[in-house]
């Protein structure tokens, strides 16, 4: 559904990468534009191709030469900050890391994330994520734990992976609990299960977040369909290494009568 077609104003400026990339037929982009409560839809742009081009390059070209007010969020353009999340051909991805030559031929659709409320064009309101993060108690070592810590790498091995998270929120976007069922109030979402897992598995942390992650975090809403893992640009095994271990820890407490008996008998946690 295009509300307009805007051919690139070729000739108004040097073509991107002129002389440094390959030429070819212009690429067709269908980019979502709009503001809540107003006319919205996809606008067609034709963008000259450049060798090794990523989707964000095309958006920048459009901003520079066609639509100076096309809004998108981006910072580093090196897949390290996690700002330029969008849905490219319907799949949640980072625009800075999606190479045009990895996409099938034909028009390329770029839309904002679905699970977050739209602000404008490709930019959504991700404040929900920051609010969830505030609810998760921070790392808290024992007050008498001597500093500097002595920790074996073996004990941090699992957590290193979780700390790779760049908070692009693509996992939150793709998760059907948030995306299709709108359970924002009852569900932390994959990114924050990763966060909780990184804290819970830290050898020096003393706070217990399991009850919170089971109740207000809605861990049980996750049905292990693993889309979060599929979209993660940092290749974090969100489901296998964070969510399932958390579910197992919750099962230790709530679904394991054998452990309950042993807890009673031995008086251990």
């Amino acid at each position: 559904m295009a509300i307009a077609e805007r051919p690139a104003q070729r000739g108004t400026a040097p073509q991107p990468g002129a002389g440094s990339g390959s030429d070819g037929a212009p690429l067709e982009f269908h980019v979502f534009k709009g503001i809540p409560g107003e006319e919205q839809g996809e606008v067609t742009y034709r963008v000259p191709p450049v060798t090794g081009m990523v989707v964000l390059d095309a958006i920048h070209w459009i901003q520079k030469h066609v639509d100076t007010d096309l809004a998108c969020r981006w910072n580093c353009k090196a897949a390290k900050c996690g700002s330029c999340s969008a849905e490219i051909n319907g799949m949640p991805r980072l625009m800075c890391k999606t190479r045009i030559d990895d996409l099938p031929d034909g028009p390329i659709t770029v839309r904002p994330m679905t699970a977050f409320p739209l602000i404008k064009d490709l930019v959504t309101d991700v404040s929900h994520a920051y609010e969830v993060n505030r609810r998760i108690p921070q790392f808290t070592p024992a007050a008498d734990e001597p500093s500097p810590f002595v920790i074996q790498e073996m004990d941090l091995e699992r957590i290193y992976e979780f700390r790779k998270c760049i908070e692009c929120f693509l996992c939150q976007d793709v998760c059907h609990v948030l995306r299709s069922h709108d359970l924002q109030e009852q569900f932390y979402g994959p990114r924050f299960f990763v966060r909780v897992a990184s804290l819970e598995m830290h050898p020096k942390d003393t706070v217990d977040r399991l009850e919170a992650v089971r109740t207000e975090g809605g861990l049980g809403y996750c049905n292990i369909t693993k889309c979060c893992t599929e979209v993660c640009p940092e290749h974090i095994h969100i489901t296998d290494n964070a969510i399932i271990p958390l579910k197992e820890r919750v099962a230790d407490r709530h679904w394991d009568p054998l452990r309950a008996v042993s807890r009673l008998l031995l008086g251990k946690r």
Partner: peptide, 19 residues
């Protein structure tokens, strides 16, 4: 650096468990 570690920052470790 040690303060950062106490705030939850992770570092690669030496074989004897230090940063």
């Amino acid at each position: 650096v040690y303060e950062l570690e106490r705030w939850g920052g992770l570092f690669d470790r030496t074989p004897d468990g230090r940063i």
